[in-house]
Design a protein around this nucleic acid. Structure first.
Lengths: 226, 226
DNA sequence: ACTCAATTTACACAGGTTTTACATAATTTT
DNA sequence: AAAATTATGTAAAACCTGTGTAAATTGAGT
């Protein structure tokens, strides 16, 4: 497996703090991007989903909480909120805004980096990420370049199995075994049907994405074109 | 019932400043009230609780800090303190008087309005706001685009749970668990019933709002159409 | 290389099943 | 008695599956 680069979006209007964050993150091996105006965050994220967002709560343009909620309507990407006061953390936690972690000013850069790492590690956990595809197993949700893929349960399973090991070829029987753990007997053609629907749903969202390939005489595999 | 307007109480003895504040706030859509004598503040607030108080510290009659403390004995309404000197802010913060924010003279009116907005938004506190939906958990009240949604307790719970994490899919059992914390055994179809009524009450108010979606084979989720 | 037959895959479509929507009724609470 | 909650039954919808047919792939024979 190839190491994927982690791009971190820093949303902070205080230039000094922003550049401090930037320095520490880049020297820890992350690539970064800084946005200081709250209004620009959501469009930017929609356009190009970062690996993680460091989000200050107090912002010109649009409030951090609001931004967080908005992002959560279309993506589960990790968000760490930065708040000025300790007491606020409890309140925020209670509000169930959907952030993955909170950090209070003033904080040590070292701590910040540690949290970023931790959140990224956790987030990698129950989701599969290829560059453009994201599968959240717990929620049975799939998204492609940030756009939701509306999959049925079987379709999701199928995609999950294939995508979890790109390049590996699965025979239809292997797929059947893994989708229906001995609960059911189904024909191979059924897999074809599901593959067909899955492919359609993917190309419906992004036409040039055809990463489900059939291997003649063997089965199917998942592979990105590049 | 109509949408409640945000009434801001300005406590300021310097007439010029008071009227400046007044002008900016009214032109930002708030209704205002001005009190110049410290002694009159607490009775006025007790009588009719404003949405927010802008409170100068130096006042004839009674000190701003004292007023703040007194108000905090009976209400959590947002208070922004106005102070003359920057150094004082730190001291005040340390004193833990209970104000929500501090602002120093001289300040730009624009900044002031921004702070008022921010504090009000924060103070909305235990309410969930999506663009059109507002849920006040403490009062069990819901409104849609300002129009009240007359929900029963179960319906409110249901909507609250779903709306608090848009996009997340809840199975019927998860919903049951969270509505009746082991107090009761109910069938899944019951959830369907409540969902149906909830949907109707929502579309009765605004027909094109259909943000409760079923996910075949899994459960329900809340999601705005755009 | 070309053709052809055998095999495999793609896909449209339909039957059958599961799940959901909704009206209605029964029960419980207020 | 009225309102709210829960349960039930039935129609509608969504989904899964398999079939048949067309298209693609392969490899052998020419």
């Amino acid at each position: 497996m190839r190491t994927k680069e982690n791009r971190i979006l820093i949303v902070e209007d205080e230039p000094k703090l922003a550049s401090l964050l930037n320095d520490y993150l880049t020297s820890s091996g992350y690539t970064t991007e800084i946005i200081s105006n709250g209004l620009k965050v959501v469009p930017s994220v929609r356009d190009n989903i970062p690996s993680l967002i460091l989000l200050d709560i107090m912002l010109p343009g649009k409030d951090g909480m609001e931004i967080c909620r908005e992002i959560r309507t279309f993506s589960d990407l990790p968000i760490i909120m930065i708040t000025a006061r300790v007491e606020e953390v409890d309140r925020l936690m209670g509000l169930n805004i959907g952030a993955d972690d909170y950090i209070c000013k003033p904080f040590s850069p070292r701590e910040m980096v540690a949290r970023v790492k931790a959140v990224l590690r956790r987030a990698a956990g129950d989701t599969i990420r290829l560059e453009e595809l994201k599968l959240d197993e717990s929620k049975n949700r799939a998204e492609l370049k940030g756009r939701p893929l509306d999959l049925t349960v079987v379709e999701f399973q199928l995609l999950k199995i294939l995508a979890s090991d790109p390049g590996r070829i699965y025979t239809r029987n292997q797929l059947i075994d893994r989708i229906y753990h001995d609960h059911r007997v189904v024909s191979d053609r059924t897999i074809d049907s599901h593959i067909k629907k899955l492919r359609k749903k993917i190309t419906d969202v992004i036409p040039e994405y055809d990463f489900i390939h059939s291997v003649y005489g063997v089965g199917y595999k998942f592979e990105t074109s590049d």
